[in-house]
Amino acid sequence: MDKRGKKIAGTMLYVPGVLLMVLGIIYLPITASMSLAVAAALGGAAMTAAGLYLNHSHKTKTLTARTVRYVLLSLGAVIMMFPFYWMLSSAFKTSAEMNLFPPSMAPNNWFDYGNFVVAFETAPFARYFMNSVIVVLSSVVITAFTTILGAFAFSRLKFPGKEILFSLLLSMMMVPFEILVITNYQTIVKIGLSDTLYALVLPFISSIFYTYILRNFFSSIPDGLYWSARVDGCTNWRYLWKIMVPIGRPALMTIILLNAMASWNSFMWPLLVIKRDTNRTLPFGLYSFTTEVGANNELLMAASSVVVMPMILLFFLARKQIVNGVARGGIKG
């Protein structure tokens, strides 16, 4: 076979090979006949390899690299997203559909929201939702306030012992909440706030970590701005709220988002201090719901979707800030 013929034969093998492989891999998780999908993927891979062997020009190579990359990434993305898809699809299934094996990949009726209705009737999810919103909002507002003031004091104002105090606080950052929780639990019980919503906000009114982030941001604002404002007679208070806070909005947004996420998803602390049904927040309410509905997984999935949705929405709205915040702060949400 001459060179040209090889090239054509290679392309003929290569293109359908890639297509077949992609088809097989994408179909792997959702097809009914697994063996067919595996065969398609393997056959496609073999064809691609053969095609590449026959026709190894630069163009095909980059094309191959790109295809492999997209296929791998899509496969990973499918695996990562699958639990969410599974949660939603299960939320719309009837209990008869849930008890099929092998399970059906999609519900018969995507618009049958009966499970949500039953879940909301079985447990006071509206109440849990309200509690979560109240806790998150007050926690975010109060924490933002104390953090702004504290970060300003540590970045701009002078007072004796500032450096020592700040390094003491920084060293406190490595003490995890799981250790503080013991005394805080005792304190909350002793001051008579256990089983109230206050107990869910109070221990988190100030955070060293958030103050540290914001202080670093405030410190990066040039001194000249401060001194010219001061010379013109601006008080520290006005300077903070009219100049520092507007400039520091990205960092502040990060703090607020991280805080809201942590507060919304917080599980161990509510589990400790809350007893009454009416004071539960969503994650804890969902957790106790599991014992109430037992094996009715379709109800659990419906309830889980409700818990997860607001954070997913928040993520869609503020993906960049959240990702940047996590990357910069190096903490888990």
Partner: peptide, 11 residues
């Protein structure tokens, strides 16, 4: 990135 923002309880 989505699993990061969702509650461990739910997922």
């Amino acid at each position: 990135f989505l699993p990061m923002v969702t509650s461990i309880t739910a997922v």
